[in-house]
């Protein structure tokens, strides 16, 4: 862990294997607890990182099948950047299009395509950079107390 006056950084590389998103969530949980986020906020951070990892696992088509997560702990916020070296998110695959899933019995009860919406609801800032060399999702959770 690099230690500076105002921020600390943790780097984690995980393979795209089932349940490996839990390794990222566990790391995020430890860091968030160190930063004194409350229990509810820790769970929100864990869920956001799980959803981001799952999106990368399912859609990146990355040849190296790894996800790199950079956690940056600042005085008043935890930032994490999740990067893959996949094919990027084509506009027709972005949430709002067919990834939203087929309507079932109840049209407003769609089953898939919620990941990014969940992340945006639970976190303070979400930014997606995507291109032919991969995707990086940057997420910020600010401390409330």
């Amino acid at each position: 862990m690099a230690n500076t006056a105002s921020k600390q950084q943790v780097l984690l590389t995980i393979p795209m294997y089932p349940d490996m998103e839990l390794a990222a969530a566990k790391t995020a949980s430890v860091l968030a607890e160190l930063m004194d986020f409350d229990e509810g906020e820790v769970e929100e951070i864990q869920l956001a990182i799980i959803e981001t990892c799952i999106n990368a696992f399912e859609h990146s088509q990355s040849e190296d099948k790894t996800v790199v997560i950079e956690f940056i702990m600042k005085d008043d916020e935890l930032e994490f950047k999740i990067s893959d070296r996949g094919v990027g998110i084509a506009s027709e695959r972005r949430p709002g299009s067919e990834l939203l899933g087929q309507p079932g019995l109840h049209p407003d009860l769609r089953k898939r395509g919620w990941g990014l919406e969940i992340i945006r609801t639970l976190m303070d800032e979400v930014d997606v950079e995507t291109g032919a060399n991969g995707t990086t999702v940057s997420v910020v959770k600010k401390k409330t107390t």
């Binding site: 869920l47 799980i50 799952i54 079932g104 089953k111 898939r112 969940i118």
Partner: peptide, 13 residues
């Protein structure tokens, strides 16, 4: 402990 969006989609089913 945690429920991801795929787990929730199965609850919807």
């Amino acid at each position: 402990t945690l429920i991801n969006s795929i787990g929730i989609s199965i609850l919807i089913e």
